[in-house]
Design a protein around this nucleic acid. Structure first.
Lengths: 125, 125
DNA sequence: GTGGAAGCTAACATTGATGTCAGGTTCAAG
DNA sequence: CTTGAACCTGACATCAATGTTAGCTTCCAC
C-alpha cells in the first residue's frame, strides 16, 4: 500500500511515517517513480512504533527494540543484547516512576478541584 | 531569601525561578539594587508549581490555578470559576488517560523484555 | 573600599516529534 | 494525452521549559 493509505489506516500522519523511515524504524520498497510501497505488515509495525513512543521511548531506543519484537511478520529476528535488556529495564523503571508521579499529580489536582470548586475560604474547617 | 538559596532549597534552577516569575507564577520583592528577595512561603509555592508541572500542566493553566491553592500563606485567595473547574476536570481526565496509557506501555515493554531476553526465536512455541 | 561571590537582563540554543509550505514529479483513470 | 490526486524532497516552524553564555551590577565580609 502507499503512504496515504498507511496513514489513514494507522492514524499517523504521512509526515511522521516519513520521519520513522528516516529514523530507520520503518522500511518501504519504492516504485519505479520513487513512491513508497508498504507491505501489509507495516500497519502492525507502525502500531508497535506508536506504542513505544507512547511509553516515552526515543526513536533511537525504539530502533534497537523493534528487531526483538514479534509482529505480523512472525517471530522476532533478533535477540536483545544484555545491554539492551538492561536499558529496557531502566525504561520500565522510568515508566513506573512516571505512573507514581502521575498518581500523585492526580491527587494534588483533586485537592485543588475540591478546594477550588466547593469551598470558599470561610467554609474551610 | 535570595534566588540562590531558593534554588538550592527547592532543587529548581535559578533560570527556572526567573522564568516562573516571568510567567506570573512567582512574585518577588526587589532590593534597592534590583536583586530578588523571596519570603519563606516561596519555597512552598515553588513546590506547588513543580507538582503542577509534573502533572503536565502548562504555565498558563498553573497561573490560573495557583490563586486557588492552599499554601503556607494560608487559605486560597480566590475561588475558581466554573470554567476553571471544568478545565481542571479535563486535565484530570487527561492524567487518567496518561496513566492508562502508561500501564499499557509498561505491559508492552514487559512483553518485549521477556521476548527479547529469554527466548530465541527457535524456542517460541 | 575592595574583591569575589552572587545577581541582573537579554539573547540564543536545545530537544524531538510533528506541522506546514513550496516547488516539483508520478500515478492512474478517463 | 491529460488532468487532478497523490506523492516526493527539503527546509523552516512549532512548543515549552530549561540550559548556556555574555557583559554588567550589586552585595557584603574583610
Amino acid at each position: 500500500m502507499r503512504i496515504g493509505e498507511l496513514a489513514r489506516r494507522t492514524g499517523v500522519s504521512e509526515r511522521s511515517l516519513r520521519y520513522y523511515e528516516q529514523q530507520g524504524l520503518l522500511a518501504a520498497r519504492r516504485t519505479a517513480g520513487g513512491h513508497r510501497e508498504y507491505p501489509e505488515a507495516a500497519v502492525d509495525r507502525v502500531v508497535h512504533i506508536q506504542e513505544l513512543y507512547a511509553a516515552g521511548l526515543h526513536s533511537r531506543t525504539i530502533y534497537k527494540i523493534l528487531p526483538c519484537m514479534q509482529d505480523a511478520d512472525g517471530s522476532p529476528s533478533e535477540i536483545a543484547t544484555p545491554l539492551l535488556v538492561e536499558e529496557l529495564t531502566a525504561e520500565r523503571e522510568r515508566i513506573d516512576r512516571m505512573i507514581t508521579d502521575l498518581l500523585r499529580s492526580r491527587e494534588v489536582l483533586d485537592e485543588v478541584i475540591v478546594t477550588a470548586s466547593g469551598q470558599p475560604a470561610s467554609e474551610v474547617a
